[in-house]
Design a protein around this nucleic acid. Structure first.
Lengths: 335, 335
DNA sequence: GGCGCCAACGTAAACGTTTTCATGGGAAGT
DNA sequence: ACTTCCCATGAAAACGTTTACGTTGGCGCC
């Protein structure tokens, strides 16, 4: 016994298939009485409309695709959680394609999603306007996350890295550590660049006389460790270190500890991201938190808005705030 | 200019739609020359077959669904990564529905996936055979992960919690700590129960004279802390503690440290899962690692096997090994 | 009472594929 | 040279919906 089709329901309820469709979808154009009869019949047969048939005629899949790079634990799961919850609330399905690092990989992924999704959520450092033009039909709604794309044709949702970095650096300075050093992220990375600019801006504003002190890093723990060693070798050591992400802060912390430098008494330390580990290192790491669940949720809601009325007036760029979380490593909380 | 259809390609290549279909799919039943001409035409028009139309006639979606509970960071991302990579390797898409905790929620999720997927991957403590019978068509291939379902009708893939626990307890005992205590997981949890049984088995085998010492816990850090305090209050303290997961081990570690008990010199400690934090606490936590990426990969491959030949002889139950990773907290490695 | 209108309902086309079946033509076998 | 067979190809049905359009009947209005 194969799955029941709309014809079976029609026969069972003694109406035409058109009426069944109307009763189950719009509800208009059909008497309350017959509608009830149809519903009953559908229940009895455990009728579930064939998704593909509906997609074919409707040209709506009720599915959105998420294209994600190779992401680390917490961030990935929180992001998906946010997207998924918001999608479910809207009756949308979620087609995931993760762990893309190469551009070419991403290209085949989006192409293979063609026709299976109504819209796309893309988080990827490598994707730019040219890529989108080349690989996507112009009419497919897309929302870019954490993207450097400036073109107002494309909708982007960014974390306010700049403001977060400014807030943290300002906090460090106000805690009395004017000489703040910065451990930068990887060259091409958009987040990393914004955080660095935030550092520069905050220094210029709150400690204009203090020297800028920027060390190279690539977001890895090891690069943080190296930066820590470098920094210890400097003639005049900084009073505080702000790392562009938590992993580097952890690496740097290791270097400082090894050298017998006390954190935060000798050098204060702060990171960015608030990964779970931040809470567990000693001393607990001060950092900047971005509510990743919200990032996913807002992104999906933005996209859903585009689906309903592409011509609508939804702003093409949006920014998501972040908050600094003060723990022990920055030497401000008196515990 | 709407997307090109198979008819457009047919016209462009001056053949019938049937030939286009044959050339692009099987390749058989069509001359190499015409096939080439068709391919060229398809390329020129940037033809991408309409997925829904194909699903409708083929009754294959080339998509598998993943139903997941509210999972914590690392585990979730690794699992998805494994599933996703294996799926992509097979040309399958991945429809994700996560963060389900209630049974009812899960039920509507699987129902809404009806017809959109060729098979289902389910990880959930709450799902049992009755649920599956009630909510899924009998012919839909399903693979259960970490499930207590024993019914050979359903395919399940479990982590070998038992063996992992046995190995770790044996290791602790052989390191000279015969009196090993165990912090248990939540009551109904399948993994937790298996780990406890592993503890019991290993104790019975390697330290039959030592007393069993089992403390309550619920996988949370706080419950680990409470268990640690409890354990310190015991008249004769254990020489080692094996927690059913890492979070509890971390909580317990905090309790021990607070009491001035040295780890591992006074009491050795071990956990289960190898979450990232395990590496970063002091002393670094010995634990049992399960290769979660493999879990996802193997599960998907199993499911893919079912799709190809449901009648095939693939075993209905499978088990994935795990390995103990020795760090400082168990006092065995001489660093 | 006839006329027109509207609501409820049915009929059939359309969506874009795959696949079965029919048809043709050319090569091979006698 | 005629038959036989096979292989490439085309025509058309089928998949399960939605929806534009037609048809019916009842009701109000003149």
């Amino acid at each position: 016994m194969a799955a029941a089709t709309i014809k079976d329901v029609a026969r069972e309820a003694k109406v035409s298939v058109a009426s069944v469709s109307r009763a189950l979808n719009g509800g208009s154009g059909v008497t309350a009485a017959t509608s009830e009869r149809i519903r009953a019949a559908a229940d009895r047969l455990q009728y579930i409309p064939h998704a593909a048939a509906r997609m074919l005629i409707t040209r709506r899949t009720h599915t959105i695709g998420a294209l994600l790079p190779d992401l680390y634990g917490e961030f990935f799961s929180e992001l998906i959680r946010g997207i998924d919850l918001a999608a479910r609330a809207r009756g949308l399905h979620l087609l995931v394609s993760s762990s893309h690092d190469g551009v070419e990989e991403a290209a085949v992924a989006v192409r293979s999603m063609q026709g299976r999704v109504d819209g796309l959520l893309i988080l990827s450092g490598r994707v730019d306007a040219a890529f989108l033009r080349a690989n996507l039909p112009r009419e497919l709604p897309v929302v870019l996350l954490n993207s450097a794309v400036k073109n107002p044709m494309y909708h982007v949702l960014n974390v306010d890295n700049h403001a977060g970095a400014v807030a943290m650096v300002a906090h460090l300075i106000q805690a009395g550590h004017a000489r703040v050093a910065f451990i930068a992220g990887p060259e091409g990375n958009f987040d990393a660049r914004q955080r660095e600019q935030g550092y520069r801006a905050a220094m210029a504003k709150h400690a204009p006389k203090a020297p800028l002190n920027i060390l190279a890093g690539d977001f890895s723990e090891e690069s943080g460790y190296r930066a820590g060693r470098e920094l210890l070798a400097q003639k005049v050591r900084p009073r505080a270190v702000f790392a562009a992400n938590d992993m580097m802060a952890v690496g740097c912390l290791t270097a400082l500890k090894e050298a017998g430098v006390r954190v935060p008494q000798d050098i204060a330390l702060a990171g960015f991201d608030d990964i779970p580990i931040a809470r567990y290192v000693t001393p607990a790491l001060s950092t900047v938190r971005v509510r990743i669940v919200d990032l996913g949720r807002v992104a999906l809601e933005h996209l859903a808005g585009l689906l309903e009325g592409p011509d609508s007036s939804t702003a093409s760029a949006q920014t998501l705030g972040c908050e600094i979380v003060v723990r022990e490593s920055c030497g401000a909380s008196v515990t």
